[in-house]
Amino acid sequence: MIQRFIELGEGYGDFYELIELALSNKQRVHHLIQIETTIKEQKRASLAVVLQPATKAGFMPIYFCREGISIHSERVSERIRVFNELAETIHKKIRYLEVRPSADFPEKDLYQQYLIGVLRVNHCIPPLNW
């Protein structure tokens, strides 16, 4: 099985595209994931939607918006609130993970391979021979 990240941008339009992808494919949603990290002493979140493979081709897409949301202890971000509402709407629980920031990796592909490993270890995505 091929498991690959499909990165959307960090803006509001990209976030709402992620939400629409989940809503229009709700029967395929495997997991909703909030990936947290710290960048320059600021907590940031990436939001991800993991979809089941559409066919026997074995391609499992992981759509995500990388590190674009600030996490503040005193108030909940509007995008995180909408992501929580999405989880309620499609009857899925959000998985929370803490990872290293993407800036720790010289290439985006290396960061995504690292995340795939983290997702596998935490049973958010199945092993390759699934």
Rank of each mutant, 00 (worst) to 15 (best):
F59T: 07
F59V: 13
F59N: 08
F59R: 08
M60L: 13
M60A: 08
M60R: 14
M60P: 01
M60C: 10
P61S: 01
P61I: 03
P61H: 01
P61E: 02
P61Y: 02
I62W: 02
I62L: 05
Y63N: 02
Y63W: 08
F64C: 05
F64K: 01
F64I: 01
F64A: 05
F64H: 10
C65Y: 03
C65K: 00
C65G: 03
R66C: 06
E67W: 06
E67N: 08
G68F: 04
G68R: 05
G68K: 05
G68D: 04
G68A: 07
I69N: 00
I69S: 02
S70F: 11
S70L: 12
I71T: 01
I71P: 00
I71E: 02
H72L: 09
H72K: 07
H72G: 03
S73H: 07
S73W: 08
S73E: 09
S73C: 04
E74A: 11
E74Y: 14
E74N: 14
R75Y: 07
R75D: 03
R75L: 07
V76Q: 13
V76G: 04
V76A: 08
V76H: 09
S77L: 04
S77Y: 01
E78H: 08
R79W: 07
R79K: 15
R79P: 03
R79E: 11
R79Q: 10
R81G: 07
V82S: 06
V82E: 07
V82N: 04
F83K: 01
F83W: 05
N84R: 14
N84M: 13
N84A: 13
E85G: 13
E85T: 12
E85H: 15
E85Q: 15
E85S: 14
L86Q: 00
L86I: 04
A87S: 14
A87M: 07
A87E: 07
A87L: 10
E88W: 13
E88T: 15
E88S: 15
E88D: 15
T89V: 12
T89S: 14
T89W: 12
T89A: 14
I90P: 04
H91V: 07
H91E: 13
H91F: 12
H91I: 11
K92P: 11
K92Y: 03
K92V: 08
K93R: 14
K93L: 13
K93V: 14
K93S: 15
I94K: 00
R95E: 13
R95K: 12
Y96P: 05
Y96E: 15
Y96F: 15
Y96S: 12
Y96G: 06
L97W: 08
L97N: 04
L97D: 06
L97Q: 07
L97I: 10
L97Y: 09
L97E: 10
